[in-house]
């Protein structure tokens, strides 16, 4: 018993404080992956049953809805193409680094952490698909989190709402910077150390600021839901709701950032 206890304590210390055990985890993931996939099977089967047995009408309605949506999005993309071209031209004029289109891969969520305290998801892409530590994870609505553990075929991502996660953000309206810390609940982000005088109002959209070089710039993170000025506190109390559907998404996007600095030669 004593041997086992000492062994576990030593293991925990080494794993928590150092990186020596990362390869062990990597290869242990070979054993864990079958279970993670197997645990996803019931959900897959129920989705399959739903798809197979849903009525023709409901499929037709869904199809019509999706087509309408596709048209809407297409229109927006047209506008976006012109805007991004203009943006690149302006940036070139300003001699700042060009924004290269981010390279995106779609992954599927195959599991969530069984412990409700830890907001983690397991995705079906691993080191063999080019996933690396710190890779940003998004869904269609906004930033979801980042990869914290990479296995050969699956990897684990920490969501922005986890209480140990923080992300540098910016208010879209005026560029005020802040840090959004996870609130420990799936629909809560807390902005820390916001001065009482800062211009933050309810409904402000938070986008990633790209500071810290972990997340790409300009992706939506959340919407401010509560601003409270308490004279007894040194900072304003600001809460936000994540834009990404942290508890509903099935497919996520992995953003492989290619930040290219503009050379002097390119300009001359």
């Amino acid at each position: 018993m004593v041997v086992v206890a000492v062994l576990s304590l030593g293991l925990m210390f080494v794993d928590h404080r150092t990186q020596y055990l990362s390869p062990v985890r990597y290869y242990a993931a070979y054993l864990a992956t079958p279970f993670q996939y197997a645990a996803n099977v019931p959900a897959d089967v129920s989705a399959w049953v739903y798809d197979t047995f849903s009525s023709r009408e409901s499929l037709l309605t869904e199809n019509a809805k999706l087509q309408a949506r596709a048209v809407l999005l297409q229109r927006r993309v047209q506008k976006l193409a012109a805007l991004s071209a203009e943006n690149i031209r302006l940036r070139e004029l300003l001699n700042s680094s060009s924004l290269v289109n981010d390279n995106v891969t779609v992954a599927e969520i195959i599991g969530v952490a069984p412990d409700p305290f830890r907001h983690e998801i397991i995705i079906n892409k691993g080191a063999k698909n080019g996933v690396f530590m710190g890779l940003p994870v998004l869904d269609a609505q906004g930033l979801m989190g980042q990869v914290i553990e990479v296995g050969p075929f699956v990897s684990r991502a920490l969501l922005i709402s986890d209480s140990s996660h923080a992300i540098p953000v910016q208010i879209n309206r005026n560029g005020v910077r802040a840090i959004a810390v996870g609130g420990g609940s799936l629909d809560l982000l807390v902005l820390t150390h916001v001065p009482d005088t800062a211009d933050v109002v309810e409904g402000d959209i938070l986008v990633s600021s790209g500071l810290g070089l972990r997340f790409p710039r300009g992706y939506p993170v959340g919407v401010v839901t509560r601003v409270q000025h308490d004279p007894g506190e040194s900072f304003a109390i600001v809460e936000a709701k994540p834009s990404a559907h942290l508890d509903r998404s099935r497919h996520v996007l992995l953003v492989f950032k290619e930040q290219k600095q503009l050379d002097w030669d390119d300009l001359n």
Partner: peptide
């Protein structure tokens, strides 16, 4: 230890608790 690997917790955490 298997639980730790699968849940991604600190290695040895569940191992110790289950051993005890």
């Amino acid at each position: 230890l298997g639980v730790d690997v699968m849940e991604g917790s600190v290695l040895g955490l569940n191992a110790l608790s289950l051993a005890v």
